[in-house]
Design a protein around this nucleic acid. Structure first.
Lengths: 133, 133
DNA sequence: ATAAACCTTAGAGTATGGTTTAAGGTCAAG
DNA sequence: CTTGACCTTAAACCATACTCTAAGGTTTAT
């Protein structure tokens, strides 16, 4: 499989695939005489692994750790994978909390503002930001 | 007020205040003979405005638009402030949804993995990423 | 008078995850 | 045999929001 084929199969752009290689995430199994990258079926699985990992919110660094486990399963234990997952879960829950807080504040601002063509002289949004807690 | 005073009063570092100036968000009302920045009380209000705006999730660019309204209220209408707020609210709701989706997926992964010292050979987290939907 | 604390600037560095560019080599079809 | 599609590289660029550095000038307290 050449890089363009993997692009189609995996849905990851050739540009990004090269970037992943440079980042140590996905090296093609070999290079042709013309120096073209050749990817195996296993590489396709890895590419999809990366995609799913990213969809779960894992950074490239975290994805890299997960890949290390995948690549050499017998040298790793479940606890490692679970720890990475646990950390990410916490991180995401914290992010959600922060966003929910913002949402609440914004909802109030949005609710109280008339939103009309009146001058912003007495706009409740602007006032709140000027004098807020 | 010198920059160090504003730093204390506003809780925004002097470094960041200079950065905000370069970004056009907060220019000190004047410069002394020694070229030191001098901030007025109005500047302090603006600094706090920026801080609250950021706490609501507004980017510096959006904060800049809100500041333009604040600075010249009679030339702006409520609809403008409400539109900015509305967009941000939507954006945040979308972010929350994406995160909730991740959270759900991660929760399942986390739940099914034994997390023990067993070899990762049959780790459900790794398997799910390898073969997922 | 001298040391600490404060101020100035331009510019580079940090982090993340790519994207784009320039300048070129290779392959397949007609 | 040429045209277009595909491949190669290193390096620069994008966005966001800082953060730090270097090299220096000023102020204040003792």
């Amino acid at each position: 499989m050449k890089i363009g084929d993997l692009e189609k199969q995996s849905g990851i752009s050739a540009h990004t695939l090269r970037y992943y290689e440079k980042s140590g995430l996905l090296k093609p199994s070999k290079r042709g005489d013309n120096n073209y990258r050749h990817y195996s079926n296993e590489d396709l699985i890895t590419a999809k692994f990366i995609k799913r990992s990213k969809a779960c919110g894992f950074s490239l660094a975290e994805t890299s750790s997960l890949l290390a486990i995948k690549t050499d399963k017998s040298q790793h234990v479940c606890a490692e994978a679970k720890a990475i997952t646990h950390n990410k879960l916490q991180e995401i829950e914290e992010q959600i909390q922060r966003l929910e807080q913002m949402k609440e504040t914004l909802s109030k601002l949005h609710h109280y503002c008339c939103g009309g063509q009146e001058s912003a002289e007495f706009c409740s949004i602007i006032s709140a930001l000027e004098e807020g807690e």
